[in-house]
């Protein structure tokens, strides 16, 4: 019914506001409210997982992802990020590499995973690729990461 749809968009408006303000506890509640009436709302589910990540509840997030494969088909990045933060870098790398084509965010995560796995040569290549092809507010931080990779390559080579 249209009343239901109006209600749904009101709930999404709430969710959107909390997300923009970085109020992830509240966003999580709003997302759950949507999902309790519309269990197949993919975007609400996505917001729920992002909220859990922002709240550092990586175990919970990964649990919900694996219990809801249908809603999680586009959440490769989120899944791999949880695995990375739960100190499962091998699994995280597998998850990332399950994608045919890596988006910038997946490349960024892959670089960090390779660093954790001490695969510095490949890590270096990924960073060089990202730095060449992105422009955002984190270029200094990214170059700091690149120099950390270089430092480790030097230690390895010595």
């Amino acid at each position: 019914s249209s009343a239901k749809e109006a209600n749904l968009s009101a709930l999404y408006a709430e969710l959107n506001k909390f997300g923009q303000n970085g109020e992830y506890e509240r966003a999580l509640k709003a997302a759950n409210k949507i999902l309790s009436s519309q269990a197949d709302e993919e975007k609400a589910f996505h917001c729920k997982i992002v909220s859990l990540i922002q709240l550092s509840k990586f175990n919970d997030a990964l649990g919900f992802i694996s219990k809801n494969p249908k809603l999680s088909s586009d959440l490769t990045f989120e899944k791999a990020y949880c695995q990375y933060r739960l100190n499962q870098p091998q699994e995280a790398l597998k998850t990332v590499n399950s994608e045919q084509q890596l988006s910038v965010k997946l490349k960024e995560l892959k670089a960090q995973i390779l660093y954790r796995l001490e695969q510095y040569e490949e890590c270096f290549d990924v960073y060089r690729d990202i730095i060449k092809n992105t422009e955002d507010d984190y270029e200094d931080e990214r170059e700091t990461n690149l120099s950390a990779v270089l430092a480790n390559l030097c230690i390895e080579g010595s």
């Binding site: 249209s2 749809e5 109006a6 749904l8 968009s9 999404y12 408006a13 969710l15 959107n16 997300g19 966003a27 975007k43 996505h46 917001c47 992002v50 990540i53 922002q54 990045f77 989120e78 990020y81 990375y84 910038v104 965010k105 960024e108 995560l109 960090q112 660093y115 984190y138 931080e141 990214r142 700091t144 990461n145 120099s147 950390a148 430092a151 480790n152």
Partner: peptide, 27 residues
Amino acid sequence: PLFFDLALNWAEFPSLEDKLDGAAKKG
């Protein structure tokens, strides 16, 4: 060495535009 977790910056909400005025569009 210092190493930043820049991937966390990419953990963000999808665009909810279509959900916000979804009812209106469907109307």
